[in-house]
């Protein structure tokens, strides 16, 4: 039982990550793929915070001495475990992953906005946001340009002939 509790969080986060990846791979619509991307980013955040949680720990905000919450929190843990994990009378979760994920979320929104702006410009340039149609129109445009290049070359060769 305890090994299940120990790894269940990691497995759930991995399933969410793979779900986000699947959404990115399977849809051809650019906007839906951005949604898949933000699911993936959120699940990375979930993974970091899973590793930061200390059993019986509380929010990493220092509690001052006279706060009644100290006794309340201490009463919930068995003493043997309490000595090893506590810092001056309170067990705190690890604050470091919180800092990383906090900025990752805000930067994630900035990149989401830039990605959506690109999608809007792709829509205005190609008239669609579906991946296949964009590739098809690209091929047509390349074929068109290469045909024009040949025309220019033939005219150039005739001109100097």
């Amino acid at each position: 039982m305890s090994s299940f509790v120990g790894y269940a969080n990691y497995f759930a986060v991995i399933i969410l990550m793979m779900g986000g990846l699947y959404v990115i791979f399977s849809t051809s619509n650019l906007i839906k793929r951005m949604i898949g991307l933000s699911i993936l980013q959120t699940s990375v955040g979930l993974f970091y915070i899973t590793t930061s949680k200390v059993f019986g720990g509380t929010v990493p905000i220092l509690i001052d001495e006279d706060d009644p919450a100290r006794a309340e929190l201490a009463s919930r843990l068995d003493p043997a475990y309490f000595e090893s994990a506590a810092y001056d009378g309170v067990v705190y979760s690890n604050p470091l992953p919180h800092v990383l994920i906090l900025t990752a979320i805000v930067v994630g929104v900035a990149t989401l906005a830039v990605g959506l702006a690109i999608a809007v410009r792709v829509r205005e340039a190609y008239g669609t946001v579906e991946r296949e149609e964009i590739e098809r129109k690209d091929r047509i445009r390349h074929a068109h340009e290469s045909y024009e290049d040949e025309l220019d070359e033939t005219e150039a060769s005739e001109a100097d002939a």
Binding site: T58, V59, I61, A69, E72, L73, R76
Partner: peptide, 10 residues
Amino acid sequence: IGYLFGRPAY
């Protein structure tokens, strides 16, 4: 859950 976990910091 703030009160359930004994720390209403949220």
